[in-house]
Design a protein around this nucleic acid. Structure first.
Length: 506
DNA sequence: GCGTGCGGGCGCA
DNA sequence: TGCGCCCGCACGC
């Protein structure tokens, strides 16, 4: 377990692959050598040991939508994944992302949820059940034993991440706290446009719904960026900006920018989380410029409160695939990636087919949307006439992998809930082009040196059920913790000291 | 209303 | 026997 201890040291969403216990063992370790940091997005056949006083572990929380499953064992709590809810038409949100709703845990609620139309295009919502465990939903097991809470997961999620519960709860609770004191003043301000500062915001604000319906603010998925130094909107006026940001960030289900990456884990060769914000000038123009361009198409459906801002995932996949024809190079990926769709459209919305139900393909060793990467709005502006856009579009934030040195240009793209500050990036053992964006920093390009080769193994796939992949196999887990003005990357064990939870080390 | 935990019960391998 | 899954119930927020 020393290895795990090392992982834990950097706060990584470590993978209990070297643990000696099994959740079904009659006797669990009495004195665990170490305890893991809570991992909100466990994926794969992992095992963690949490402290018994770990609140999230006590609540058996998970970013995934997990429902209780009766395993007729009072000592072991078993939960199975409910997958994700997507738009049946796979429509593109105004920002180009895709819808990824968190399935309601309650069966009744979920049925109701599925009956609701897509808040974006009003098409039907489609529940994508998880089939990541030999055709069955991924299962999580929790066991309280002594002073530790043991967690074991089985299966690899074969669907995009839904909005995490903690994110939803955090936002909602924040809204409750903020609305009372914030709503009235802003409402008044909006009602008195002559006194407002945002009358001419270059169109960025012209379509922002009235505060009479504050919930509509969630249609501005990328605005509330409580990232220091990074304005929500591009309007310079602090008042208008703050109002929009605060409200947007605290609305019912409005997803703050952090949640743009509900699925922080990045499985290469999909686009990493950062490139979208990388590049010069983004800090002043806003991370998602395309949002504003399409503001007029923003629906006023209050159901948007359910939108998961991090729905960039699916879209990002599409974007990436459009720009990087890795499928032809990766045998295992080719069939399910729907390449047939790639050359058909130039319109943004037409790309929908690209990501349509890719995870249904049984041929995929890992259904590629398991952890779709965050989209790159900036990139979308590049993708115009062909589905295979030059890979150069990713260059700015590119992580160069050569000579054992990787450079992370920026981390600014990694914005997620403070509760999800950890970002695990699993480098798959795919023979990828040497360019891979890893992270972005809002303030500067940060060289990131990583010892060892570029190959990394997604721990979950190569290992048989219940096996314990070892970190020595080449797997590398990254934890990006964007706290404060800069983002932080934690890298387990084999990474150089460049990574740490205190980004000053960068 | 919904999430969550518990437990009974059923079907299948 | 183990597992997946359905269901109902109770409790808390």
């Amino acid at each position: 377990m020393p290895a795990e201890a090392g992982q834990q040291a950097d706060g990584a969403c470590s993978h209990g692959m070297t643990v000696s216990w099994d959740i079904n063992d009659p006797q669990m370790p009495r004195e665990p050598d170490h305890f893991d940091r809570f991992c909100e997005w466990p994926d794969g056949y992992v095992r963690f040991t949490y402290r018994s006083d770990e609140k999230k572990a006590q609540r058996h929380l998970s970013g995934w939508a997990m429902r209780n499953t009766n395993n007729h064992n009072g000592h072991i709590l078993k939960k199975s994944c409910l997958g994700v809810v997507l738009c049946a038409r796979d429509c593109a949100l105004p920002d180009g992302s895709r819808l990824q709703l968190r399935p309601a845990i309650c069966d009744k609620a979920r049925l109701k949820q599925q009956k609701k139309p897509c808040p974006n295009c009003h098409a039907a919502l489609e529940w994508i059940p998880c089939r990541g465990y030999s055709g069955y939903p991924v299962t999580n097991f929790w066991r309280l034993d002594g002073n530790a809470i043991f967690f074991q997961a089985k299966g690899v999620h074969d669907h995009p991440r839904p909005e995490s519960k903690s994110e939803t709860e955090a936002r909602r609770s924040a809204i409750k706290r903020q609305m009372a004191s914030f709503y009235q003043p802003q409402k008044k301000r909006i009602r008195e446009p002559e006194a407002g500062e945002n009358q001419d915001d270059g169109g960025h604000f012209s379509n922002i719904p009235s505060l009479e319906n504050p919930e509509e603010f969630d249609i501005i998925p990328d605005t509330g960026f409580p990232v220091p130094g990074q304005p929500c909107f591009s309007f310079p006026n602090s008042d208008a900006y703050k109002a929009a940001c605060d409200l947007a960030a605290f609305q019912g289900d409005i997803v703050p920018p952090f949640q743009k990456y509900p699925n922080p884990r990045i499985f290469l060769p999909r686009p990493p989380c950062s490139y979208e914000l990388a590049g010069p000038g983004y800090t002043n123009s806003g991370p998602y410029p395309t949002l504003y361009k399409e503001a007029s198409s923003i629906p006023d459906d209050t159901d948007w409160v359910h939108l998961n801002a991090l729905q960039y995932n699916i879209n990002s996949y599409g974007s990436f695939e459009r720009s990087f024809d890795f499928t032809s190079k990766q045998p295992g990926w080719k069939p399910a990636l729907g390449k047939a769709d790639l050359g058909e459209s130039t319109d943004h919305g037409q790309f929908q087919a690209v990501a349509a139900r890719p995870y249904y393909n049984p041929e995929l060793p890992c259904r590629y949307l398991t952890t779709a990467p965050p989209a790159a709005p900036a990139l979308q502006t590049v993708i115009t006439t062909t589905t295979k856009v030059s890979y150069q579009a990713y260059q700015p934030p590119a992580l160069k992998c050569c000579d054992n040195v990787r450079e992370v240009k920026s981390l600014s793209g990694c914005n997620y809930d403070s509760e999800n500050t950890q970002m695990s990036i699993y480098l798959e053992d795919l023979d990828l082009p040497a360019t891979v964006a890893m992270a972005a920093s809002p303030t500067a390009s940060l060289p990131l040196k990583i010892p060892g080769d570029c190959q990394a193994i997604r721990h979950t796939l190569p290992f048989p059920q219940d096996s314990a992949p070892s970190w020595t196999d080449g797997a590398e887990t990254w934890d990006v913790c964007p706290s404060g003005p800069g983002s932080t990357i934690g890298y387990s064990e084999r990474i150089s000291p460049f990574f740490s939870y205190d980004h000053e080390d960068f």
